[in-house]
């Protein structure tokens, strides 16, 4: 597999899917994210890079309100998806999370069969009317996650029995089975070997045709390979946000340049 391949930089749409303005996050006394403004385009892969503890995962978790599950976490500012404020009291975070899927750092398939893993979301949201429809959703999700050929003969065997890369693709299939509009990925390849990583990256590029994908990564090569837009976070600030090629070849901020050349981290 050619590791040097670069994703198509041309974006299909200039429509912004997520608009964040003045986002601040506090964990108790700790001011984790300071005044972040971001516009995430539809049908685009946006990468968040930055050193550990810079707030990129925190910001990602704001986008589907997973931070609500952490005690003492306060989010200020406005985050709009399709011009609807997701922190509005009228918004049900549970519904929101079905619309904004998430894939985690470590593959976390449920200890159920492969089929039940994928069917989990559609079942709890009542997306299908009968077994045949559910079967179809499971199949299309697994196909989109490029896992169908490996898993079609063992749908009843436990998802935890798959290899690490397959497990992560299963988690992606599980996330896209609820037909989300945005897919958040928190370092999805950090627990995987290079081959599985390449498969996932290829998958991300394909998923772009249907979803807006936001990926947090520690690997700058990965960000360069898969994304069209890149945001660089440092010490809780969004330092620079722009077209990926520009960020990596011609950064405007000296801190971005120091980071991508390996001088701060």
């Amino acid at each position: 597999m050619n590791d040097m391949r670069i994703a198509e930089r041309v974006v299909d749409s200039m429509e912004s899917k997520i608009t964040a303005r003045g986002v601040q996050v506090f964990y108790g006394q700790n001011h984790a994210l300071k005044d972040v403004d971001v516009d995430i385009l539809d049908k685009t892969v946006t990468a968040f890079i930055g050193p550990s503890g810079c707030g990129k995962s925190t910001f990602l978790r704001c986008l589907n309100r997973m931070n609500d599950t952490i005690d003492g976490c306060v989010v200020k500012g406005s985050i709009k998806i399709d011009s609807e404020d997701i922190y509005d009291p009228k918004v049900d975070p549970v519904q929101l999370r079905a619309k904004v899927g998430m894939v985690f750092q470590k593959p976390n398939p449920f200890p159920k069969s492969i089929y039940d893993n994928v069917a989990y979301g559609p079942k709890i949201h009542g997306l299908t009317r009968n077994k045949a429809e559910l079967d179809e959703v499971v199949e299309t999700s697994l196909r989109r996650a490029a896992l169908w050929n490996e898993a079609k003969d063992r749908l009843k065997s436990p998802g935890t029995g798959l290899s690490g890369g397959q497990q992560q693709r299963l988690c992606i299939a599980r996330a896209i089975a609820t037909s989300p509009e945005v897919l958040l990925m928190d370092e999805p390849c950090s627990a995987l070997d290079p081959i599985a990583t390449a498969q996932i990256e290829e998958l991300i590029d394909e998923l772009r045709s249907q979803f807006s994908v936001v990926i947090v990564t520690h690997s700058m090569q990965q960000a360069a390979r898969v994304s069209q837009r890149t945001a660089f976070f440092h010490l809780g600030y969004l330092v620079e946000f722009g077209e990926t090629g520009q960020i990596f070849t011609n950064p405007k901020d000296p801190r971005t340049e120091s980071y991508i050349t390996g001088r701060i981290g």
């Binding site: 589907n64 997973m66 599950t69 549970v94 519904q95 929101l96 999370r97 079905a98 619309k99 899927g101 998430m102 985690f104 470590k106 976390n108 398939p109 449920f110 200890p111 989990y120 979301g121 709890i124 949201h125 988690c171 599980r174 996330a175 609820t178």
Partner: peptide
């Protein structure tokens, strides 16, 4: 039971 199981389920929009 690992927290990642709960995160996975909550992340899919389960209550």
């Amino acid at each position: 039971v690992p927290q990642s199981m709960r995160d996975g389920s909550l992340g899919l929009g389960a209550t």
